[in-house]
Design a protein around this nucleic acid. Sequence first.
DNA 1: ACTCTGACGAACC
DNA 2: TGGTTCGCCAGAG
Length: 113
Amino acid sequence: MNDPFFERVYRVVEHIPFGRVTSYGAIGRYLGSARSARMVGWAMNACVKNEKQLPAHRVVNRNGLLTGKAHFGEPNAMQMLLEAEGVEIDDNQVQDFKRRFWDPIEELPPDLY
DNA sequence: ACTCTGACGAACC
DNA sequence: TGGTTCGCCAGAG
């Protein structure tokens, strides 16, 4: 908990299982900052800059919308990555989002690291 | 030092 | 149903 906010975000993102997705808000809640979803997104933006090898494409907004696709270079890069994992995407929307959703609060230890 | 801007989300009109 | 406001807080100008 003494680490920078980004570091904690990165750690959670690293644990997102293959073929699953989560939301910025869910990560924020897990980190104890329920209202800092924006910071989570901001941290992801920074991760690209830091060349972190994170499955950032598995993080979408609460509606399952690929709001961060613009930051993956090619317009469809994010969608391609997800579809490569078996996640169906239609019009920037994760299909069957409910089933694909991975909540760190439920799947991860309450006090990871 | 100050203002503006977000890969968000929830609360309000 | 849908637009606007606000909280969050780290960078950029």
